[in-house]
């Protein structure tokens, strides 16, 4: 038995040394390209949590959460002019559905004691069952936000494949120009898409969000999220982010209207507002970098629209 134990100890020691050396090498070499620790299966979400650690959350009164419809379409400059630079944050990340948002709020509300308003900019995909939920370990986020572990973060949230894959991709993601996958957050956490006409991806350009059915499960989550926020005296705004005009014909318009009626019936119930951007008319193709993501001009126009609508709705109350 002793022979077996010695062999195992020697082998484990060798493997641990090998892994530690590799991790240390990447940690030293990685610098800014090193991905955020593995809190979830979404690199975008993880990077946003790392971004959050650097911010003073006590002052924050308004946040935007949601998917890329919030991350890429909401202009931080316009928002911070209205809400105040130190009082607003964009916490959105890729593929973040309504149900993910509900989980996020229930777990993260404690970090924002002065929060007054939560805005979600979403399209039908974010309220459908087609996308899978993001798997998040909120306990590890608590540990991360409350401690400073340095390299030990990478041992604590051990996932070599994730670090290796994202280490290679992060170099590209920290760029802002001509990339759809930018994670180069501005001061308030937004990441607008700055893509010139020659770099527009044809496949993305042709996609269509009207194909996605609204899910009852997501609507239930929306309802309970509004309930939770209402209990905490936090106002909620859901903005439907529009898709480009050429993709919409009369049949699709009917389908859009039907879906919007379904969503708005839930949102208008409690301490919350619903903003239907399609009411403003159609949004010209020249404002987009694909089917639903705005370019710089589009994001500014869209955010100004949100702020104008908010002013109106807040004054009405």
């Amino acid at each position: 038995m002793k022979k077996f134990i010695y062999k195992i100890i020697f082998y484990c020691f060798f493997v641990i040394c090998l892994i530690s050396s590799l991790l240390y090498y990447f940690y030293i070499k990685g610098g800014n390209d090193l991905p955020a620790p593995y809190f979830s299966n979404s690199i975008s979400f993880n990077e946003k949590i790392e971004f959050l650690k650097e911010k003073d959350l006590l002052e924050i009164q308004t946040v935007v959460i949601g998917s890329s419809m919030s991350l890429n379409n909401v202009d931080s400059k316009v928002m911070s002019e209205y809400f105040g630079k130190t009082k607003y944050l964009n916490l959105a990340s890729w593929g973040f559905k309504i149900s993910d948002g509900k989980e996020y709020i229930s777990n993260m509300l404690k970090y924002f004691p002065d929060l007054r308003l939560i805005i979600i900019s979403a399209n039908f995909m974010d309220i459908s069952d087609k996308l899978q939920n993001i798997t998040v370990d909120y306990t590890s986020i608590d540990r991360f936000l409350n401690n400073n572990l340095g390299i030990f973060n990478y041992f604590a949230w051990f996932n070599l494949k994730y670090y290796k894959d994202n280490y290679q991709l992060n170099n590209e993601r920290k760029k802002r120009i001509n990339t759809y996958q930018t994670l180069d957050f501005d001061e308030n956490g937004g990441a607008l898409l700055d893509i010139d006409k020659n770099h527009i991806n044809k496949l993305r350009w042709k996609k269509d969000v009207t194909e996605f059915d609204i899910s009852d499960r997501e609507l239930k989550n929306l309802e309970s999220m509004i309930e939770l926020l209402s209990k905490n005296n936090i106002r909620f705004v859901l903005v439907i982010s529009p898709q480009r005009s050429s993709l919409i014909d009369s049949t699709k318009q009917l389908s859009i209207d039907r879906k919007i009626r379904k969503i708005s019936s839930i949102v208008k119930k409690k301490n919350s507002f619903f903003i239907n951007s399609y009411e403003k008319g159609l949004w010209d193709d020249s404002l987009y970098v694909d089917y639903a993501h705005f370019n710089l001009k589009g994001a500014r126009k869209f955010t100004e629209f949100i702020v104008d609508e908010l002013k109106k709705k807040l004054n009405e109350r």
Binding site: V15, L18, I19, Y38, N41, W157, F158, N159, L160, K161, Y162, K164
Partner: peptide, 11 residues
Amino acid sequence: ITMTIIYFAGN
């Protein structure tokens, strides 16, 4: 085999 397992273990 051990190194491959460790590499993929996070998922």
